[in-house]
Structures are given as C-alpha cells and as structure tokens.
Deep mutational scan, measured.
Amino acid sequence: MKVMIRKTATGHSAYVAKKDLEELIVEMENPALWGGKVTLANGWQLELPAMAADTPLPITVEARKL
C-alpha cells in the first residue's frame, strides 16, 4: 500500500490515503527508519523499503502491512 512518511514535531508519522488514516510511528526496528518494521500508534505494523538514511521527507513509499 502507498504510505506517506513525514517528520513531525514529535517524531515521524505515516499517512495511508486509501484508509484516510494518519498515525504517529511509535516504534522502529531500525533507527534510520528504512528497511524494517515500524509500529503505528493504532497498532498496525508496516514493513518499509530499504532507502538511504538521509532520504528527504515527506516521501510516499510502497509499504507492506504485516
């Protein structure tokens, strides 16, 4: 699914347009965010693609819901 990742004042957030859902990312498998699992505030887990740590945000990526 397409997910937009952006930086907020409190960390990172994910927006899933198909579900009209925006949630804070509360847990990251990798400190650089990319190439691992993230957990959203509502409990969803997404697998993000591997990208460079300095990838500019906001960005829309293809993520997989676990």
Rank of each mutant, 00 (worst) to 15 (best):
G43H: 03
W34P: 05
T8L: 09
M51Q: 06
D54S: 09
I59G: 00
M28R: 10
E22H: 11
A9E: 12
T55K: 04
K65T: 11
S13I: 13
G43K: 01
P49C: 06
P31D: 12
A14W: 07
N42W: 05
A14R: 02
W34C: 03
L48M: 09
L57R: 02
L21K: 11
T60G: 04
P31I: 10
M28F: 11
G11Y: 06
A32F: 14
T10Y: 13
A32E: 14
T60M: 11
V26D: 00
K2A: 11
M51P: 01
A52Y: 06
H12V: 12
T8Q: 07
E29W: 06
L24I: 13
Q45S: 10
Q45K: 11
L46F: 13
K37A: 08
E27D: 12
V3D: 01
V38D: 00
V38G: 00
L40C: 04
M1P: 03
P31R: 08
S13P: 02
E62T: 14
A53W: 13
K37P: 05
A50P: 14
L57S: 01
A17P: 14
E27I: 09
T10K: 13
N42Y: 02
D54Y: 06
L24S: 11
L33E: 03
V16A: 05
A63Q: 02
M4A: 08
V16M: 13
T39S: 07
K19V: 15
K2F: 12
G11A: 06
E22L: 12
P58C: 06
K18G: 15
L66Y: 09
D20F: 12
M1R: 01
E23H: 12
I59P: 00
M51V: 05
E62K: 10
D54V: 05
L66K: 06
K18D: 15
A41F: 05
E29L: 05
T60C: 13
A63K: 02
R6C: 12
A14S: 02
E47Y: 13
H12A: 05
E62A: 09
L40F: 04
P58H: 03
A9V: 10
P58Q: 03
N42I: 04
S13N: 06
T60H: 06
V26C: 09
E62H: 12
P58N: 02
L33V: 04
K7N: 06
K18L: 14
R6G: 06
K2G: 07
E27C: 14
E22D: 12
G43C: 06
A14Q: 02
A63P: 04
T10S: 13
